[in-house]
């Protein structure tokens, strides 16, 4: 494990991929350690259930290992991972469409303690909590394609070029999608907040 930790800092993704292609599983373990959180955060924000998110994250890395020969070095390894994750999340959303609303509501309730505001004023603190909950719910109610781009751009703060690579579109197309998704998010949030954000 010490060797792997050392490799995290010294080897690039491309070098690790070459080693992993050659059958060196320890190199792939380094890649897993390096990008596990990124993939997990994206998957969790998309499906909002911890157990399922961990399963999906694991599936993403298993599939990536199986298809490592198909990976082209022109794209970032993280972009490729996120594309696999996006496809898996979309497949899961299609298969579990009926249960998704209930799961999202449960997830929003369970996440409330983590998104508590640090404001000292109790009223402001309450308003922050309301807004946070409304944004979480609005994010969950967005279409999967809109939620996906909001998560990548505004939650994970990925550059537009990476988002365009994941989505398979141009940078302009990614910006346009982000614009529409943000507008939908704002409308939903305002509707949940009663038409006004008192902050």
């Amino acid at each position: 494990m010490q060797v792997a930790d050392k490799a995290v800092g010294y080897e690039t993704d491309a070098d690790l991929v070459v080693r992993a292609r050659g059958g060196d599983f320890s190199a792939y373990e380094v890649l897993f350690e390096r990008h596990r959180a990124l993939v997990y955060r994206f998957v969790y924000q998309m499906c909002r259930k911890q157990d399922d998110s961990e399963d999906l994250t694991q599936e993403v890395f298993v599939r990536a290992l199986r298809n490592l020969d198909r990976y082209r070095d022109q794209a970032k390894f993280t972009t490729w991972l996120l594309r696999i994750a996006s496809n898996l999340v979309a497949d899961r959303a299609r298969s579990q469409n009926r249960r998704s609303v209930l799961e999202i509501e449960q997830a929003s309730d369970g996440l409330a303690w983590m998104t508590r505001s640090k404001a000292t004023d109790p009223v402001e603190n309450l308003e922050h909590e309301r807004l946070q909950e409304a944004v979480e719910r609005a994010l969950a109610q967005l279409k999967p394609q809109q939620r996906e781009i909001i998560v990548m751009r505004d939650v994970q703060e990925l550059p537009y070029q990476d988002i365009a690579d994941v989505l398979g579109c141009t940078v302009g197309g990614a910006k346009l999608r982000a614009l529409r998704a943000r507008k939908a998010l704002r409308d939903l949030t305002l509707a949940l907040m009663g038409g006004e954000i008192k902050l």
Partner: peptide, 25 residues
């Protein structure tokens, strides 16, 4: 406000370990 709320969206810690990946493979 919406932008700030999105930035403060938290994600629970990932409990996935290398051993899980190895077993899964």
């Amino acid at each position: 406000a919406i932008r700030a709320a999105l930035r403060s969206v938290k994600t629970p810690e990932c409990r996935l370990q290398v051993e899980h990946l190895r077993n899964a493979v």
